[in-house]
Amino acid sequence: MKAAIKTGSIIVLTLLASFYAFTQPSPELTANITGSWTLPVPSVDVTEAGNNYGGAYTSAPNQVLIGFQGNPPGQFKNISWSIEIYRLDATWDPSIQLWVRRTGNGNGQATGQCTPAIYGGLTYQQVTNVTSPFLSGACQYSNIPLEFQVRNVSVLTFAQNYSTQVVYTVTITGL
């Protein structure tokens, strides 16, 4: 009888534990973006008839800030991660090139177990329609500053508004 009670208790506790494990919402990773970039190409850049536009157009060094965190807060204190980047065109001329680079480290959130680190992205890399590696590091980060460049805008590009969406994918690579 005693054994039966003991076993019954174990069953109840185990079922409760299982129920808890299954019903708890999975912790989520949330990425957040601050900013966007709108570039009005200045027509006065064609100072001489017969000439093309000159050079590239560069955004502010902190035009866009990117970060990511666990949700609910406190999750993923000790993680390694990577960020991939690609371009999803709405209206875009294939001759226009979009480039991006990281201009700072942002704010890494140190915990007892995790030393913030961020790698890659310090030199300009082209953002294409194909996903490509951009940044990697450890611990949660916020406010990673990004600078953009638009290149190859020329007087061979029709006059209109071009628009593209830059998509960042943050993946946990280790816990």
Partner: peptide
């Protein structure tokens, strides 16, 4: 863990 995504627009007016 599912990857997290975020996005923003880049607009160029020629």
């Amino acid at each position: 863990q599912d990857p997290a995504t975020a996005e923003h627009m880049v607009n160029v007016t020629v």
